[in-house]
Design a protein around this nucleic acid. Structure first.
Lengths: 231, 231
DNA sequence: TATTGATTTTTGTGATCACATTTCCAAAAT
DNA sequence: ATTTTGGAAATGTGATCACAAAAATCAATA
């Protein structure tokens, strides 16, 4: 019975227990700190965060609806295994979703919001410079989220986050073996296109950002990583 | 306290209570039988299906993660309100998602599976002929699902179903005021393109099927429907 | 008559318990 | 040495209860 390691996380008051559990588990999965195939037990998690099975179960149900966890026939719950095929599907889907989200945001985004994007991008560059992978990852997500949610009627964000979640375990594997993540930054290009209100150019910048970033892993490299992880 | 009306639904044995609750509620929302703005109570639903709060709460959490329900600040749960803007986003997203899903299925689908699509399409035509809206709707979904899941590594289906779920309440409104739904069927076109393994043509057929079907509502017609529903 | 304020009821939340199933581990049999 | 089998421990599931917050009800006041 391996004890589950969970980073403590600030709990704003008013936040319910199941919400807190959801957030903590989600973050752990997103940054790849739970290994695929590792099976999670309700009581184990409940104990790890000093609560009871009921709210933990709710958190796990949500995460499985979000694609972050898989419920087996035995009713055991685990992080889905990553394969080269699944990875390919995730990247292709991510590109399609985010191109669309970006395009749909262009008409709504304000100059003020674009300024905010510039700030976030700068902070990310600093994080990369000081080799702080975790911070850079979070800032990269914040950049994309800020852009897409500029559209007030947007409904795609939960799906984008679902893909991020499903890519999390791969990031964990990659970080174990690569030590330093390679970040691609086409954000400047996206920002310039946003200022010109050129939707096609924005979409293309986002596409490049994704495909040359995490999506740029060669298939051979992926299979190699996954083989290493299996041992 | 308005009693919740839920169609009874067969419960395969081995199915857990929360799963059953999830399915029943999901179906009710999908065919639009729960009015937007109507607030759901955990105890009310538990009573309606003769169980207890715990599994119902789990079902509601899943549905809110799937975008079918919204949790308010009061922690009340309701079906999201539909607006013309949101409807537009849903249709645009549906088109993008399903074009992509269709394109990604082409390489994997077998002749046998294409034959199955022909059968489903025929059954749908029969349902339309006998003016059985509910059956036609379900068969239409089965057609699309069968196509997209031909890709064994596909991860997009939950997202497609999420969009269907979010469109459900609109269907309910439309059916209250239009009596007879107008079905567009570009399935034959998709089937022909599949036989030729022409991915672009398949994607285009699916796109047309969506945009000329439920997506074909004029904006004025939508706003009219929504205005009627508000009273 | 409309509005405020107190009380009663309803509701969401989470801990706990009992039950059935599954998993695990060690001893016995092949 | 490997497989089988028995029981013990662990696990998922769902009903119930207690508590706090929210909503609804109703009486008193302006």
């Amino acid at each position: 019975m391996g004890a589950l390691i969970l980073e403590p996380l600030a709990r704003p008051d008013g936040m319910t227990t199941h919400e807190y559990a959801h957030r903590r588990l989600r973050q752990a999965i997103m940054v790849g700190s739970i290994r695929p195939g590792e099976s999670l037990t309700i009581r184990g998690i409940a104990e790890a965060m000093e609560s009871s099975p009921t709210p933990v179960r709710e958190a796990l149900r949500r995460l499985s609806s979000e694609g972050a966890l898989k419920v087996l026939d035995n009713r055991r719950i685990m992080v889905p295994k990553m394969t080269a095929e699944r990875f390919g599907e995730l990247i292709a889907l991510r590109a399609v979703l985010e191109k669309h989200a970006a395009r749909r945001a262009v008409a709504h985004i304000t100059e003020r919001q674009i300024d905010r994007l510039v700030e976030i991008d700068k902070a990310q560059d600093e994080a990369i410079a000081r080799k702080d992978n975790a911070a850079a990852l979070l800032l990269n997500q914040e950049f994309h989220r800020t852009l897409y949610t500029a559209n007030p009627d947007q409904i795609i964000m939960p799906m984008v986050e679902s893909v991020w979640l499903q890519l999390g375990p791969f990031l964990g594997i990659a970080m174990e073996h690569v030590a330093q993540l390679y970040f691609v930054d086409r954000h400047q290009e996206a920002i310039a296109a946003l200022r010109k209100r050129d939707a096609d150019a924005v979409a293309e910048a986002i596409n490049a950002d994704i495909c040359e970033g995490i999506g740029g892993f060669e298939r051979a490299a992926i299979e190699n990583l996954l083989r290493l992880a299996r041992q």
